[in-house]
Design a binder for these strands. Structure first.
Length: 592
RNA sequence: GGCGCUGUAGCUCAAUUGGUUAGAGUACCGGACUGUCGAUCCGGUGGUUGCGGGUUCGAGUCCCGUCAGCGUCGCCA
């Protein structure tokens, strides 16, 4: 080792000891005579003092030091003079009196330094990720990430799970997200797909008798990015045999309890609350609601059926919905202009026709441009239903179930944040259960699996599988933290007949099913135990535990919204010979 | 693919609603200074206002296109 100590460990207890430190120059304070250098590494910062009266380091060498130079300093620990301790750092009681200085490596003038006040733009940070990763916040996050993964692994290990790796080069599956493809050199014209998740492999492991499997698995989905979505991401993948839904959610309850306790000092009350999908959609308009605050959706469709106001009446009579939210004390926050912005959002994002609103005035009356369309007793009924009190802002969406859910969910989320209805540090864990098995795709005119096609239906809904697929509920469960889907899983189908039936419902002929999933259907015939599992989005869990608002800050080398790596400039062109070997000719050759 | 925000010195930002030679802080370079910790003080270098068109007597500012970053909708079993 070039060093004897790190920059975070020398304290008053080490006074008079000699030591050697290595690190990066964080800051220099040059007084012409004495020069102070804040030396930084992963562990902390130590003030190094170059005093010409005592150091052997030539002044010309000390003068050369600049930000982010990598240096090695021999010296001795000394107590700082009275009144000069720096309480902001752990090593603040001492200083390191330099004897010798060696510059291990210089540093070009960096575009930004880790300690600077204003964070540079994200593009710059990603281009020079090695500099960005030197920032304390990034280090803290990656350390947190490591603790979370270690905590998960330890917990799983304590519960008899074994870690098994599954292939990265696999077979493309037609259902689900777009695959990342890898061309085969040996078999020109054929392709591997990177795994969207190790789903089938882990089911096969259950059939093979490895009844408790985990993997920290990298997954790939070639879909557009979001603040909480990356094209490659990491899941804690879990599968267990001889279990029902409660066993899986119970296991994760315990894991979350441990992580929350160990890493956040938060005591969770178990079991974590469970909400059915239907309830979540009815009360919050979404299958991953943020339950840190109230403000539930209130249905006024029955009232709308009685009123003359055409917009409400026509929607209600047409079998659609008039539902609203009460933004408590929202009239001050949302002026006419603010309401216009909310209106624009629901129109642009979800195609809502409009946003109806009422202000509850000081005298308790409802004010709104549309109020004249209502009889006084109707206004009273609306106010009573919405629990309207002076200062409240009542917002209504009159539309289809889908549009009203999306719009009200989005309004609720935005208003909750803008009106600070919750403590951003608060954490809320819950389960959403009993998802529908299928969703009808009007474009393709067929049922599609809501989760994935291996999901087992709820036993009591089995008889509806053919008669009313839309009503069949799945043995599925999503873990929701602060309004984010942090994980999801299901109990799987473990008999080939039910599996074949579900494939059929999804519009797959027997031949198709055999062609695509024959190996799974076969495996199910060779003694498949009942099994199920879950996958947790590790990047998102880190984001939520770290109180961050985007997933890129939880990943050492993330991709931009256009799925590019700003540092390496991937993806990029390849040599023609590489394409030739794979038997690929570009449709539109790139000019070089 | 749609909608929106952003793009000015290495970095973070400003430029009075289209008007003189585009400024500040910081970084960088030079100088002063032996107790600072965002050191201080003096001086200096640094700009194709992302790129390409257009409107105008005149464009950082307005319009069109384009590229990039971010947010969002679609998409993400």
């Amino acid at each position: 080792m070039l060093r004897t100590h790190t920059c975070g460990e020398l304290t008053a207890e080490n006074v008079d000891q000699t030591a050697t430190l290595c690190g990066w120059v964080d800051r220099i304070r040059d007084f012409g005579g004495v020069t102070f250098v804040d030396l930084r590494d992963r562990y902390g910062v130590t003030q190094v003092v170059f005093n010409p009266a005592h150091t052997k380091a030539p002044a010309e060498l000390v003068d050369k030091l600049r930000s982010e130079f990598v240096i090695k300093v021999d010296g001795a620990v000394g107590l700082r003079p009275d009144g000069q301790a720096n309480k902001k750092i752990a090593t603040g009681e001492i200083e390191f009196n330099a004897d010798q200085l060696e510059i291990l490596n210089a540093c070009k003038t960096p575009p930004f330094v880790p300690g600077q006040k204003d964070l540079p733009g994200e593009e710059i940070r990603l281009q020079h990720r090695y500099l960005d990763l030197r920032r304390q916040k990034m280090m803290d996050t990656l350390v947190l990430r490591n603790k979370i993964i270690k905590g998960m692994r330890d917990y799983a290990s304590d519960h008899d799970f074994i870690d098994i790796e599954t292939p990265i080069l696999g077979r493309s599956t037609p259902e689900g997200a777009r695959d990342y493809l890898v061309p085969s050199r040996v078999h020109n014209g054929t392709f591997y797909a990177l795994p969207q998740s190790p789903q089938i492999y882990k089911q096969i492991m259950m059939i093979a008798g490895y009844d408790r499997y985990i993997q920290v698995a990298r997954c790939f989905r070639d879909e557009d990015l979001r603040a909480d979505r990356q094209p490659e991401f990491t899941q804690l993948d879990i599968e267990m045999s001889f279990v029902d839904s409660d066993d899986v959610t119970g296991l994760i309850d315990g894991m979350m309890e441990k992580l929350a306790k160990d890493l956040l000092g938060v005591d969770l009350k178990l079991p974590l609350p469970q909400l059915t999908y239907k309830e979540a959609m009815t009360r919050f308009g979404h299958d991953a609601p943020d339950l840190r605050f109230d403000m539930e959706i209130v249905d006024c469709t029955d009232i709308a059926k009685k009123v003359d106001f055409r917009v409400f009446r026509a929607v209600a009579d047409g079998g659609n919905f008039v539902r609203g939210l009460n933004a408590k004390k929202g009239t001050e926050k949302y002026s006419r202009r603010g309401i216009d912005e909310l209106t624009k959002m629901v129109q642009d994002d979800f195609g809502a026709k409009g946003l109806a609103w009422f202000r509850v005035e000081e005298d308790g009356s409802l004010f709104a441009p549309i109020a004249k369309n209502f009889k006084p007793e109707e206004l009273d009924e609306i106010k009573a239903r919405m629990n309207g009190e002076p200062g409240d802002l009542l917002l209504f969406i009159a539309d289809t179930w889908e549009v009203s859910c999306k719009s009200l969910y989005s309004l609720r989320k935005r208003i909750g944040a803008e009106m600070e209805l919750y403590d951003p540090k608060q954490m809320h864990f819950s389960w959403i259960v009993e998802f529908p098995m299928f969703d009808y795709d009007p474009n393709e005119k067929r049922w599609v699996a809501m989760h994935h096609p291996f999901t087992a239906p709820l036993a009591e809904d089995l008889d509806k599988l053919e008669s009313a697929p839309g009503e069949v509920r799945a043995q599925a469960y999503d873990l929701v933290i602060n309004g984010y889907e942090a994980g999801g899983g299901t109990i799987r189908i473990h008999d080939s007949e039910t599996q074949a039936k579900v494939f059929g419902l999804l519009g797959m002929s027997d031949q198709d099913a055999q062609e695509r999933f024959g190996f799974l259907l076969d495996a199910l015939k060779y003694g498949a135990p009942p099994h199920g599992g879950i996958a947790l989005g590790i990047d998102r869990v880190v984001m939520l535990f770290g109180g961050l608002d985007n997933i890129r800050d939880c990943i050492a080398f993330p991709k931009t919204q256009k799925a590019r790596d700003e540092m390496t400039q991937a993806p990029n062109v390849v040599e023609k010979i590489q394409l030739d070997e794979c038997g690929i000719r570009l449709k539109t050759p790139l000019k070089d």
